[in-house]
Amino acid sequence: MTSAEVRDPDLPGRLLILERDALIPLLRSRPDADFALPAAACPGWSVRDVLAHCSSALSRVVESRFEKGVFSPESNDRDIAERADWTNQQVVDELERGMTEAGPVIAKAGGVLDMVALGEWVHAGDVRDVFGEPGAYAGPGLPDALALLARITREKAHVPLHADLDDMDEPLRLGEASGERTPARFIGDAATLVRLYAGRPFEGLDFELAGVEAGELNIFG
């Protein structure tokens, strides 16, 4: 079995810790005005809204609060509204706690919450993208994020794809592994691949994609 086929229960928590150590100091260094900037990857949301969604989602994981409809658009909007009176730094405090404490809970859940960690990592990329920071959808957590993405797409029987990544030594195989469908092909950098699977803007980026439409790759849509 490959690493993409065997679940590493500690991987989601490790990804969150890596991102915590990079993202939280960045957020604490930004002025309040930056939290009001629109998040291009999440239409209708500001940077603060993205962070409030992330912090509330992790708090739900840590506290095992999963009522009916949790993580739906309506639930996400309610979570954000509940934090409307918080300061930006209170939102960052909650996010830091969640990124620190959610890993063991996700590990014990057997895989059903692994996608939460990947979503948090992607949203951190959304924030970096708004700020014009290097490493959006990349950075130290990228290898773990790619391993998690490969396993999630396999488990979802997603469209098979062979990715030749400019910035990685080995090709990455994603999606259904049955061999019944000829794999699509991606050539480009890993951050762009993440953008495609997360349904993020990719206009103007240099990559090749054959055998599948970009919209078919989105695992969050």
Rank of each mutant, 00 (worst) to 15 (best):
residue 10 D to W: 15
residue 10 D to N: 13
residue 10 D to F: 15
residue 11 L to P: 14
residue 12 P to E: 06
residue 12 P to C: 10
residue 12 P to A: 09
residue 13 G to I: 14
residue 13 G to R: 08
residue 13 G to V: 13
residue 13 G to E: 10
residue 15 L to G: 15
residue 16 L to P: 09
residue 16 L to I: 05
residue 17 I to V: 15
residue 17 I to A: 07
residue 17 I to Y: 11
residue 18 L to M: 11
residue 20 R to K: 08
residue 21 D to M: 15
residue 21 D to Y: 05
residue 21 D to H: 02
residue 21 D to L: 03
residue 21 D to F: 01
residue 22 A to H: 06
residue 23 L to Q: 14
residue 23 L to V: 04
residue 24 I to P: 07
residue 24 I to N: 03
residue 24 I to T: 04
residue 25 P to T: 11
residue 25 P to D: 00
residue 25 P to Q: 03
residue 25 P to I: 00
residue 25 P to N: 04
residue 27 L to W: 03
residue 27 L to A: 07
residue 28 R to C: 09
residue 28 R to L: 05
residue 29 S to C: 06
residue 29 S to W: 05
residue 30 R to W: 01
residue 30 R to A: 02
residue 31 P to M: 01
residue 31 P to F: 06
residue 31 P to E: 12
residue 33 A to R: 05
residue 34 D to V: 04
residue 34 D to L: 00
residue 34 D to W: 00
residue 35 F to Q: 10
residue 35 F to K: 13
residue 37 L to V: 12
residue 38 P to L: 07
residue 41 A to H: 04
residue 41 A to G: 10
residue 41 A to Y: 07
residue 41 A to I: 02
residue 41 A to E: 14
residue 44 G to R: 08
residue 44 G to K: 00
residue 47 V to D: 11
residue 48 R to N: 10
residue 49 D to L: 07
residue 49 D to H: 12
residue 50 V to E: 15
residue 52 A to S: 15
residue 52 A to N: 13
residue 52 A to V: 11
residue 53 H to T: 10
residue 55 S to G: 05
residue 56 S to N: 13
residue 57 A to I: 15
residue 58 L to R: 02
residue 58 L to H: 12
residue 59 S to H: 03
residue 59 S to Q: 06
residue 59 S to C: 10
residue 61 V to K: 13
residue 61 V to P: 04
residue 62 V to T: 13
residue 64 S to Q: 05
residue 65 R to V: 13
residue 66 F to T: 08
residue 66 F to R: 02
residue 66 F to H: 14
residue 66 F to M: 14
residue 66 F to K: 04
residue 67 E to K: 08
residue 67 E to L: 14
residue 67 E to D: 03
residue 67 E to G: 11
residue 68 K to L: 12
residue 68 K to Y: 13
residue 68 K to W: 12
residue 69 G to M: 03
residue 69 G to E: 03
residue 70 V to P: 00
residue 70 V to Q: 01
residue 71 F to P: 05
residue 71 F to L: 10
residue 72 S to K: 07
residue 72 S to C: 01
residue 73 P to I: 03
residue 73 P to N: 10
residue 74 E to V: 02
residue 74 E to A: 06
residue 75 S to C: 08
residue 75 S to D: 07
residue 76 N to K: 13
residue 76 N to R: 06
residue 77 D to Q: 07
residue 77 D to P: 04
residue 77 D to N: 06
residue 78 R to N: 06
residue 78 R to L: 14
residue 80 I to G: 04
